[in-house]
Design a protein around this nucleic acid. Structure first.
Length: 721
DNA sequence: GCGATCAGGT
DNA sequence: CACACCTGATCGC
C-alpha cells in the first residue's frame, strides 16, 4: 500500500494520489489511477469545500481514469474540475498560487504504468528539475528504455528524483512471471476446463478492483466466451473492454462477486447465483489470481497451482517484481529515489539501500570515472547477444560513451559536478531548488556501467543470475537481437521478449483509450494451436516443478503440468479429479517455461499483428516502442525538442495567457504533442531511434560551433536543456 | 448520521 | 506470501 504523502520535494504545491491533510492546499491535483488507496481524501467534504472556494484547482488524470472515477456518483462533483491529459503527450500547465499570485509553468507527461486501466506515471518538468512519480506500476524489463518521452534523443533524461512504487522491492520478490506467462497459464487452465462440456464453468476469484480487465478481455478473445461481471457501466465508453464482459450469467467464465462468495462456491453455486444449466448442475472451478514470486535462482515458476479439489491459484501481479524495479530504476538513474511503499517485512532503510546504488550520485561517489575492465564485463548499454557475436558487440560498443552522443547533452555532461551528490545525501532538496540548473552529473554517470561487486550487491552469490539481469537489459535495447535470440538461459526473463512489437495503434479520439494502458496480444501461437490440436488427453504426473515456496502445492503428492508448449506434457484436467474424486491428487502446474514457449511463437507472428492487437496489457510496449523503433514519422514526437522547445512554448503560452487575460490556473498546449520545428534534430532522433545504441560516437559528436555557443550560455548561467 | 480508523476477512 | 477492498466495531463530531 502506498505510503506516499502526496507531495514531492521538488514541487510541494502539487498533490498526487493523496487528497487529505496538507494536500488540501495544493495548487493542482493528480490521480495516477483509480484504486482506493490512491484516492484518500478525494471525496472528503474538506476537499469539496476547497474546490468550491478555489475555482482554479483541477484534477489531472488520464481519460480512462476520469471515466472510471466519474462512474461513481460519489465523485461526480469533480466532473468539471477534471482535466484529462493524453498519455505520452507532454502538456504544459500553469499553476497559480492564489495567495501570492505567483505563477509557475510545468510540463507534465503521462506515461503508461501497466498497473490497471488508466494507470499512469507522471513525469514533471519544471524549474525545480525533472521528476518522475511512478504511481503503481508493472513494467517488464526494458520497458523504460522503450519510453520515448523518458529520453532526450537516445539518452535518458536527467531525472532529479523518482518517486517509486516499491511494493515488491525486496529480493524475496526477485521475479514474478511476466504478464504473458501468467495470462497464458490461466488461459490454458480455463480453456482445458470449459472445453470439457457446457456445464464446466470457471469462476475467477478477483478482488473488487480495476486491473483484471486485461485478463477478462484476453480470455474472452481467445476462448470466445465473455466474462460475467456484476457491473460494467464503468466500461460503457471503453468498447474494447465492454465487448468482453457481460451481465448475462449464462456464460462459462465468471468474475462476479458476492459478499459471501465462498459459501456460494461451497454450495456449488456461482456468486451470481447460477447453480445449474438446463437442469444439469454446473462443474465449477475457482481460480484466484494472486501474486506469486520466485527467488533469484528459482528456475521453475509455476503459474497455476492447485489449492484444493476445485480451486486454483494463478499468478497475477499488478506490481513490478524486485528485478523489474531495479531494471526500471537502473535505466533511469535519477539523482534521488524515494520509495512510495515500504514492503511488508522491510524498512525504508532497506529499500533505500537497494535503490541507492542505482542512482546517479551513487555511481559518482563510488565508481571511478573510467573503468575499462568493468565496462567490458558489465556495460548496461552494450549490445550483447547470447552468441559469440555478442562479444564483438561488447567490444565495439563498450568503449564508446554511447549515451553521450547528443551534442547539447554532451555539453551538459561537461559541467562540473555541483549539487548532484550533495542533494542525494538525503538532504533537504528544497534548499537546492534554486540551484537546480547547476545540478548535473559528470559524463561517467550516464554510462551505465555495472560494477561487478556493486551490482551483485545482496545477490552477489549468484553470478549467473546477475548476468542474466544484464542480459535482460541488453536485450531490451535491441529488439532485433531479441527476436533472434530470446533469452539464452532460462525462462526467468522471457517477459522481455514478449513485449517486442512494432507499429502503433491508432488512437481514437473520442473514447478513453484504455488499451493504451493495457495491451497485449495473447498470440495463438503455433505452439498453442498445436496444443489446441491435442485436446486434454494425458496426465503427466510426478514431475512437480513446484518451488519450495509453494507449500500448498508441495503438499500434494504429484503434479500435473499443463503445457502450453509441446505435447510431451500435454494439457489435461481430469473431470473426475476435479469432481472431488481427486484420484491423481493433481496439482495443475503451468510453468513459466512452458508458457514461455508460447510467448516466443507469439513473437514470431508479431510483425503483422502488432499494431492493433498487441493487446491488452502492454500498450506501453506497443506505443512507446513504436515511437522508439519505427521510422520517425510526422506524428512522432521528438523528445529532443520537447526540452529545447519548452522555453519557447512557455513564452508563447505566457504571452497568450496574458493576451487572453485569462490568468487561468491552467493552460493546455492544445493537448498536442509538442512538435519539433527542427528537421535536423528530427533526423537525428530518427537515426538514433533505430537502435538504442549508436553505432559510432562520431555520428553524433557535437559540432564545435554549437558547443561553443552552449558553453557560452552555460558560462552566462543560462539554463540549457 | 457521517467520516475516520482499526481489526479482521477474502 | 500480498493486494485492494469490504464489513463491522468504535470513536468523535
Amino acid at each position: 500500500m502506498s505510503s506516499f504523502g502526496g507531495r514531492m520535494r521538488e514541487y510541494p504545491w502539487l498533490s498526487i494520489d493523496r487528497f487529505d491533510r496538507e494536500n488540501l492546499r495544493a495548487r493542482a491535483y493528480f490521480l495516477s489511477h483509480c484504486h482506493k488507496d490512491h484516492m484518500k481524501g478525494l471525496r472528503a467534504p474538506s476537499l469539496k469545500r476547497r474546490l468550491e472556494c478555489s475555482l482554479k484547482v483541477h484534477l489531472y488524470c488520464s481519460p480512462v481514469t476520469k471515466e472510471l472515477l466519474l462512474t461513481s456518483p460519489k465523485y461526480k462533483f469533480w466532473e468539471n474540475r477534471i482535466v484529462t491529459l493524453e498519455v505520452e503527450t507532454p502538456t504544459q500547465i500553469s499553476l497559480l498560487d492564489e495567495a501570492s499570485g505567483e505563477k509557475e509553468e510545468i510540463v507534465v507527461t503521462l506515461l503508461p504504468a501497466g498497473h490497471c486501466p488508466g494507470s499512469v506515471m507522471f513525469l514533471f518538468q519544471g524549474q525545480n528539475g525533472t521528476v518522475l512519480y511512478t504511481g503503481d506500476f508493472r513494467l517488464a524489463k526494458g520497458e523504460a528504455a522503450r519510453m520515448e518521452l523518458l529520453h532526450s534523443g537516445t539518452r535518458v533524461k536527467d531525472i532529479q528524483s523518482v518517486y517509486l512504487d516499491t511494493t515488491f522491492c525486496d529480493p524475496r520478490f526477485y521475479q514474478i512471471p511476466s504478464r504473458e506467462e501468467c495470462l497464458n497459464g490461466i488461459l490454458e487452465l480455463v480453456r482445458s476446463w470449459i472445453t470439457l462440456s457446457r456445464h464446466h464453468v470457471v469462476w475467477l476469484n478477483c478482488k473488487a478492483a480495476y486491473g483484471y480487465e486485461y485478463l477478462f478481455t484476453n480470455l474472452s478473445e481467445e476462448l470466445g466466451v465473455k466474462v460475467h461481471v456484476n457491473k460494467l457501466d464503468m466500461f460503457n465508453n471503453m468498447p474494447e473492454i465492454l465487448y468482453h464482459v457481460t451481465t448475462d450469467r449464462h456464460t462459462q467464465i465468471h468474475a462476479c462477486r458476492h459478499p459471501r462468495d465462498d459459501d456460494y462456491l461451497r454450495g456449488n453455486r456461482l456468486p451470481c447465483g447460477m447453480t445449474s444449466r438446463n437442469g444439469t448442475p454446473l462443474c465449477i472451478i475457482s481460480v484466484k489470481p494472486s501474486t506469486m514470486w520466485f527467488g533469484e535462482r528459482t528456475r521453475k515458476t509455476n503459474i497455476v497451482v492447485r489449492t484444493g479439489e476445485s480451486s486454483y491459484r494463478a499468478c497475477f501481479s499488478f506490481h513490478s517484481s524486485y528485478s523489474e524495479i531495479k531494471d526500471f530504476l537502473g535505466y533511469i538513474r535519477p539523482v534521488n529515489v524515494y520509495p512510495n511503499v515500504i514492503p511488508v517485512g522491510s524498512t525504508a532503510d532497506e529499500v533505500v539501500k537497494i535503490l541507492k546504488p542505482l542512482c546517479k550520485s551513487y555511481s559518482i561517489k563510488s565508481e571511478p570515472k573510467y573503468k575499462p575492465l568493468g565496462t567490458l564485463k558489465r556495460s548496461r548499454t552494450m549490445d550483447l547477444t547470447d552468441t559469440d557475436e555478442g562479444s564483438d558487440d561488447l567490444f565495439d560498443t563498450e568503449l564508446t560513451p554511447v549515451r553521450h552522443k547528443i551534442p547539447k547533452h554532451q555539453v551538459e555532461t561537461t559541467l562540473p559536478e555541483t549539487k548532484a551528490s550533495s542533494e542525494n545525501s538525503e538532504g533537504n532538496h528544497s534548499e537546492n531548488m534554486g540551484s537546480y540548473k547547476a545540478t548535473t552529473m559528470p559524463m561517467c554517470s550516464q554510462v551505465h556501467f555495472i560494477d561487478c561487486e556493486e551490482s551483485n550487491g545482496e545477490d552477489d552469490d549468484d553470478e549467473e543470475s546477475e548476468k542474466n539481469t544484464v542480459w535482460a537489459q541488453v536485450v531490451a535495447h535491441n529488439p532485433d537481437s531479441t527476436l533472434i535470440l530470446g533469452n539464452p538461459n532460462e525462462e526467468a526473463h522471457s517477459d522481455l521478449t514478449c513485449t517486442l512489437t512494432s507499429g502503433q495503434q491508432e488512437s481514437n479520439a473520442d473514447m478513453p483509450q484504455w488499451d493504451v494502458f493495457f495491451k497485449r496480444d495473447i498470440k495463438t501461437t503455433d505452439d498453442s494451436s498445436e496444443n489446441e490440436d491435442h485436446p486434454p488427453s494425458s496426465i503427466d504426473a510426478g514431475r512437480s516443478q513446484s518451488p519450495n515456496l509453494f507449500s500448498d502445492s508441495d503438499s500434494l503428492s504429484d503434479s500435473t503440468h499443463i503445457s502450453s508448449q509441446n505435447s510431451s506434457q500435454s494439457t489435461h484436467i481430469s473431470e473426475q479429479g476435479s469432481q472431488g474424486v481427486d484420484s491423481q491428487a493433481d496439482t495443475v502446474l503451468i510453468t513459466s517455461q512452458q508458457a514461455h514457449g508460447a510467448d516466443f511463437s507469439f513473437l514470431n507472428k508479431g510483425g503483422s499483428r502488432v499494431t492493433v492487437s498487441v493487446s491488452h496489457f502492454m500498450a506501453m510496449d506497443n506505443q512507446t516502442e513504436s515511437h522508439r523503433w519505427k521510422p520517425l514519422d510526422q506524428n512522432t514526437p521528438c523528445p529532443d525538442n520537447i526540452d529545447s522547445d519548452l522555453k519557447g512554448k512557455n513564452q508563447e503560452m505566457n504571452a497568450e495567457a496574458g493576451a487572453a487575460e485569462t490568468q487561468n490556473t491552467l493552460i493546455e498546449v492544445n493537448n498536442e504533442k509538442l512538435k519539433t520545428p527542427n528537421s535536423e534534430l528530427e533526423r537525428d532522433s530518427e537515426s538514433s531511434s533505430d537502435f538504442e545504441i549508436p553505432s559510432t560516437p562520431e555520428a553524433e559528436l557535437p559540432r564545435p560551433d554549437k558547443l561553443h555557443c552552449l558553453y557560452k550560455k552555460l558560462a552566462a548561467g543560462e539554463m540549457i536543456y
